[in-house]
Nucleic acid binder design. Structure first.
Lengths: 342, 342
DNA sequence: AAAGGCAGTGTAAGCGCTTACATTACAACC
DNA sequence: GGTTGTAATGTAAGCGCTTACACTGCCTTT
C-alpha cells in the first residue's frame, strides 16, 4: 500500500490524519458514525491533499455507481429532449448521474446499449416504451437492475411505467377532427413495428373512427419513420391520390411539420385546403406556420417523476404501478373545418 | 446490491473455457495476442454465460473508464443534438461511452458537472466553447484529463478545438445581407457574456459592417438568451421603433424562429416587409415559413471528428491544433432584397 | 466490583479485472 | 542433440475502496 506520488488515495489521507482507512471511508460515507474530533482531522487531511475518492474503486467495493442509464431512440429531433433534460436535472439533485445513449430505433443496438450500461454498473435504467425482446427484461431482472418504462402507458402490463396514454390522446384529438366535419382522413404513422407509442396512436385514431361509426377501411394510413422529410414525402403521396383527404393526421409533430411543408409546396393552404395535426407538442409545433394542432404531453413533468420513481426503486422502495400523466388536445391553427365543396 | 451469485465473472468464463483469467482478459482486450482456437473457446464460453465484464473492476485495474463526458449548455433546443448524437455514435464504435450533462448556461453548474464527470473517471471531456474559469482548465490538466473544445474556433488560443469560425460565418452572411441592399440592420444576439460563440457572431457582423464602411453605431443590438419566445419578444420590440430595420439578423435559428413568429403576428410578410436570418442551420431552419437563410454548420461531421480527436488525445496521441470545419451561407426565402420605398 | 453495553476505531478480506513477469512448448538454427 | 528465440498461456500482485468483524476503552447497571 503506497501511493506513487500522483493522485492521493485514501491511504494518504489516513496516514496524514493518523487514522485508519476505514475511518476515512466512514467520514466520507457515514459521517455520523465518527467522533467529531476525528472527523475534523480527516476532513482537514482531505482538504490538504485535495483528495477525491476514486470512482472505480468505490464502485467495486460498494457495488453501486449512482449512475442511471437512459436508452432513448434518438437525440436528433427534440422528441425526448425536454423529458430527458428534466430527468437529468432531477437525478442530479439526488446525487445521481445520467448516462444517455441512443439507438436510432434499432432493437439490436438498443439491446447492446442496455447491456453496456448495465455492464457499467448502472443502478437503474430508463427505457422508452414497452416493446422489446422479453429476454431483455429477464436479463435486467437477473442482474437486479430496476427498469422504468417511460413515455408509454399500458395498465395491463405489470411493469413500472410513467408515461402517457397515447391511445386515448389520439382518440381525443381525432374526436376534435371529426367534430370539425372531417370524414376523409389520412394518417401518417410512425413505424409501429417495435414502437408501441406509434401503434397506440394509430389504434386511438381507429377507436375514434369506430365510435363515430366511420369505416376504418377508408382510413388511408402511411407508415414511415419519424423524420421531417418522411412526413413531407408521404404528404405528397397522399395528396396526389384521386380523392385526397381533408385532413392529414400525423403520428407526431415532426411528421406533421414535414406534411405542412409538403402542403405548402403543393400550393395548398392549411387549414383552408387541408388540415394537419401532430402529436407531442414539442417546440416545433408552435414554431411552424400555421402552428400545429397537437396533443400536449407534459414532458418535463414526466421526466421529473420518472427520476423520482426510478431512484425510489433503486433505493429499495416498492415498485410503483404504471402511471399516466394527464394529456390534453392543443387546438391551434393547423386544424380547421372541413373545406366547402370545391 | 447486484451480484446475487448469478452474474458470471471472468473466473467463470475462464473455468468454462478451460483457460486462465489472463487469457480471457486478453481475448476481450487484445484478441490478436491469443491463438485462434483458444479465442474461439473463450468466446463460446462468454456467449454461453452471457458474460459482461464488470465495469468497476475494469476501471480499477486498467485505470481507465472508457467514458467520455460532454458538458453542454442545453439539450432542450436542438442546437447541440445533432453534433452530440454523431459524437456519441463515433465514440460507441470505438468502445467508449458518453456521459452527457447540461447546465442551462450556468457557469457554476458547468463547473460542478465537470468536476462530477472527472470524479467519475471520465477519460476525457468535451466542452462547448472556450470561455470559462481558467481554474477549470488548470484542474483538468492537473487531473490529467484531456479536454477538447467544440463548436468554437480560436486559432490564437493554444488548446485542442474543433469547431466553426463563427465570426467569419456571420461576416459572410452579413455580406449577403448587405449585398441585398440592406442598411438598416438589427441583430438579436444570444447572451455574449460567457458565450464566445455568441460574442464572435456579433463581432463577425460588425466586421462586415466595417468593411462596407457602414456605421457600427447604427446597428441595433438586442441581447437575450437562446429561446424562441425571446426572439419573439425582441422582434416585437425592434419593429415598433420609429425607423424599424429592413432586416433582422439573429444569433441563431431558435431566435430567428421566434422573430419570424413575431413578424407574422405583426402582419409583416417575410421577406417582403422585413428579412430575417438565423445561424446554425438546425432542422428548425427548414421547417419554419419561410425557411431561414442561415449559416450552415456541419454538426454531424464535427461530432464525428471531435470524437476521433478526443480519443486520440486520450490514447496518447499528440494534441491537435485548433481546427475549423468549413461552413457556408445557406440562402433561403427568409432573406430578400431591401423593401422598396414604402 | 464484576458484568454488560456501546460508541469509536482498526484490521483485513475481498470486489473483478488487468498486466508484468514467469513459464511452457515448440520450431529453427548451429 | 543442444541452444536459442518466439508465440501462447499461466500466475499472481495489485488497482483504491467499503465493510464485516474484532477490539478497546469507558460508562452504566446490577
Amino acid at each position: 500500500m503506497r501511493s506513487n506520488g500522483t493522485t492521493p488515495t485514501i491511504d494518504d489521507v489516513a496516514k496524514l490524519a493518523e487514522v485508519s482507512t476505514a475511518t476515512v471511508s466512514r467520514c466520507l460515507n457515514t459521517p455520523d458514525s465518527v467522533a467529531k474530533t476525528t472527523r475534523k482531522k480527516v476532513f482537514r487531511a482531505v482538504e490538504t491533499l485535495g483528495y477525491t475518492p476514486n470512482f472505480g474503486a468505490r464502485v467495486m467495493a460498494a457495488q453501486r455507481t449512482f449512475t442511471i442509464g437512459a436508452i432513448i431512440p434518438t437525440m436528433v429531433n427534440a422528441i425526448f429532449a425536454r423529458g430527458i433534460q428534466a430527468f437529468q436535472e432531477t437525478l442530479h439533485t439526488r446525487g445521481y448521474t445520467l448516462l444517455v445513449s441512443s439507438h436510432a430505433y434499432c432493437p439490436q443496438m438498443e439491446k447492446e446499449q442496455i447491456r453496456t450500461l448495465v455492464g457499467r454498473g448502472a443502478d437503474g435504467v430508463l427505457l422508452i416504451g414497452y416493446e422489446r425482446d422479453p429476454q431483455l427484461y429477464k436479463y435486467l431482472e437477473q442482474q437486479g437492475v430496476p427498469a422504468l418504462i417511460a413515455w408509454a402507458y399500458a395498465p395491463h402490463i405489470n411493469m413500472p411505467a410513467i408515461g402517457f396514454h397515447n391511445r386515448a390522446g389520439m382518440e381525443m384529438l381525432a374526436n376534435h377532427v371529426i367534430a370539425q366535419g372531417h370524414r376523409r382522413i389520412a394518417y401518417i404513422s410512425g413505424v409501429t413495428q417495435g414502437n408501441d407509442r406509434a401503434a397506440e396512436r394509430l389504434a386511438g385514431l381507429q377507436d375514434a373512427l369506430r365510435s363515430h361509426g366511420l369505416p376504418i377501411k377508408a382510413l388511408h394510413v402511411a407508415e414511415t419513420s419519424f423524420k421531417v422529410e418522411n412526413g413531407e414525402t408521404e404528404m405528397h403521396r397522399i395528396m396526389q391520390t384521386a380523392a385526397p383527404p381533408t385532413v392529414v393526421m400525423c403520428g407526431n409533430d415532426v411528421l406533421a411539420a414535414g406534411a405542412l411543408r409538403a402542403a405548402r409546396a403543393r400550393g395548398l393552404e392549411v387549414p383552408r385546403d387541408v388540415s394537419i395535426t401532430g402529436f407531442d407538442d414539442i417546440e416545433l409545433a408552435r414554431v411552424v406556420t400555421p402552428p400545429l394542432t397537437t396533443v400536449h404531453l407534459p414532458h418535463s413533468e414526466m421526466g421529473k417523476q420518472a427520476a423520482t420513481a426510478l431512484i425510489d426503486m433503486i433505493e429499495g422502495g416498492p415498485y410503483p404501478a404504471p402511471r399516466a400523466l394527464p394529456i390534453s388536445v392543443e387546438i391551434r391553427a393547423s386544424l380547421g373545418p372541413v373545406p366547402q365543396q370545391e
